[in-house]
Each structure stands twice: as C-alpha cells, then as structure tokens.
C-alpha cells in the first residue's frame, strides 16, 4: 500500500483549548482528517459517539494538547486508558512543560508519547509533522 494512502486515511482527534494552537495544529495536519474538541468531557463523548458526536468516526490517533497540572485534563487520559474499548488508541500528549514530574505522570497514565511544544510556531509545525509522519507511516496502529 502506498504510504500516501495510509496517511490520507488517518482520523485524528485533537483536544485543544486555545484557538491559536488549534490553528497551528490544523496547519501541521493539513492532509489528515482532523476533528477538534475543546472541552475535556467532549473527548469521551466523541469516542462514545454521544450527542452531537453521533456520527463521529473512531480516531486512529488522539492528540491531547494539555497542561499536566490540570486535573481535569489528566482525567481524560486516565479515562481513555482505563476503558477497554478505547485504551488501545494511541495518545500523543503535546505539552509545554518539560518538568520531570509532568512527563513521568503522562507516561505513568499510559500516554503513548509526550512531545514538548516548542514556543516557535514554525518549529511547532515541524515537530507536529514529524510526529504524525512517525505515527501514521512507520507505526502500525491498532484496528477494531
């Protein structure tokens, strides 16, 4: 199968709160199908196809733009990774913090990977593209 076909078929779910960050991430994920939610409870509603997400497609990859000191955001990670139906979907945490405690906490909650968000916009786009390239072409993702 050509690599392009694999990339184009990927569904990404993003949790991000700030418009400017959503815009950057959208730019980096241009050729993918990106769904964005901005409230923590919506991530689980999306996965469960509840309410306005009744027609949501199961994502291949979840990006959580999060602050590890925010308990509610950590609960989203915990909730997905404890749910036998959704836990196998890889979650990449994108965060500003490079504190040991935050990074450890994310992996301890079974985040699949932790990426530090560079302050520079161009650099962020580069890092996100490389991250998606790795996850969507080299990595074999789980299937239902």
């Amino acid at each position: 199968m050509p690599i392009e076909a694999v990339v184009a078929a990927s569904e990404i779910l993003l949790l991000a709160k700030r418009e400017e960050e959503i815009a950057v991430i959208r730019e980096a994920t241009d050729c993918h199908s990106l769904s964005v939610v901005s409230e923590c409870p919506d991530v689980v509603s999306f996965l469960r196809q509840q309410g306005k997400y009744a027609n949501a497609t199961r994502p291949d990859l979840i990006l959580l733009d999060m602050d590890l000191s925010n308990t509610e955001e950590c609960e989203v990670l915990t909730e997905i990774k404890k749910n036998s139906e959704f836990k196998r979907i890889p979650i990449v945490v994108i965060a500003s913090s490079e504190r040991y405690e935050d990074v450890f906490h994310a992996y301890d909650l079974h985040a699949n990977a932790y990426i530090r968000k560079p302050a520079d916009r161009t650099e962020l786009v580069r890092v996100l593209r490389a991250t998606l390239q790795f996850w969507l072409t080299l990595v074999r993702l789980p299937k239902q």
Partner: peptide
C-alpha cells in the same frame, strides 16, 4: 511502567497489534 516500549516484531497479526496496545505498549512497529 513509565519506561517506553517499542514493539518491533515481524508479526503483522491484528491480534498481536491490538494485544500490545491493550497492554500499554507505546507503539508497534
């Protein structure tokens, strides 16, 4: 459990891929 595990195997079986992720492997190649 916080140590990163990359599964690197010849197996392409869906059951292996899903089982590895269910057991919290970080990625499967």
């Amino acid at each position: 459990r916080a140590i990163t595990v990359v599964v690197l195997t010849t197996s392409e079986a869906r059951s292996d891929i899903n089982a590895a992720y269910d057991l919290n492997a970080n990625c499967y190649i």
